[in-house]
Design a protein around this nucleic acid. Structure first.
Lengths: 144, 144
DNA sequence: TATTGTTATACTCTATAACTATA
DNA sequence: TATAGTTATAGAGTATAACAATA
């Protein structure tokens, strides 16, 4: 019967996640973005065009969850919704240039704050941590 | 103006957290524990005795949040609540032997599942990842 | 007067189930 | 009949405020 020798991953990640979200809050507020709004802008950054359902899944939300978010971001000119000519049931969602700018501005500030945390790690640990986190995050995404 | 070269930490951690919680769910259900119940058992493991307020903070919850959880765990004999003789306002909460057993049994299974994830990393990255995660998690706790 | 644990209330968030328009 | 997007409803989860006991 193996002895427990480390904390649970979830028990270590949970407070870290809380701290990251708390640190993001004022930055997002300055840019007049909600967390879900920012998540959607980030989600749209990876691929140019999404259906709303695919976007919702990429962001880890229900399709009904992001509709109000899309309404607001569209109203502010950060994204477009255009019916797909090939299947007029689906909306193709894409970032506008101003949406890209808004995302990049907010993301730069957020990552600058994150760097203060990462600065507590040795350079090799920092590299390994980010590499491992990318790997595990990708595996987690594929599992769901 | 620095270019963005990696995903946000929160954007990588969020799906990982979701996956870990989803994987824990069936294990906890088998042990008839809720996530908050398990979190409280874990929180009590570090130090032998807590006030309810300190325990709530250690678990990252409001003091009102854990009262029902404590009621249930006490009912099942997993913990004791005794008024502090020195200050009869506070309840001193401590694990019973059977609470310790329940926690250890669940934790062993959970960490076995987590090992399947960590097995995707090289041995050095695994070590560095866990070391870095401990560090960052501790910093995050102290900040709050 | 301030603090601990508790309870009750209000609020927010999320999940579920209908509805429409297309296919 | 099935699916994408939408809307409305219900439920769970969370935060806030008030209360009793003690300091």
């Amino acid at each position: 019967m193996p002895e427990v020798t480390r904390p649970d991953l979830a028990a270590m990640i949970a407070p870290l996640m809380r701290a990251l979200m708390a640190a993001e809050q004022p930055v997002l507020a300055r840019h007049d973005l909600t967390m879900w709004g920012y998540a959607v802008l980030l989600g749209l950054g990876n691929e140019p065009v999404y259906t709303q359902a695919a976007l919702a899944k990429a962001v880890g939300a229900d399709k009904t969850r992001i509709i109000g978010v899309l309404d607001e971001l569209q109203r502010r000119g950060f994204l477009r919704r255009e019916p797909d000519p090939a299947d007029r049931r689906v909306n193709l969602v894409s970032l506008t240039p101003s949406g890209r700018t808004a995302r990049d501005d907010a993301q730069r500030e957020i990552q600058q704050e994150e760097e203060q945390l990462l600065a507590q790690l040795s350079a090799p640990d920092r590299r390994a941590f980010l590499r491992a986190l990318r790997t595990l995050s990708e595996i987690a995404r594929q599992a769901d």
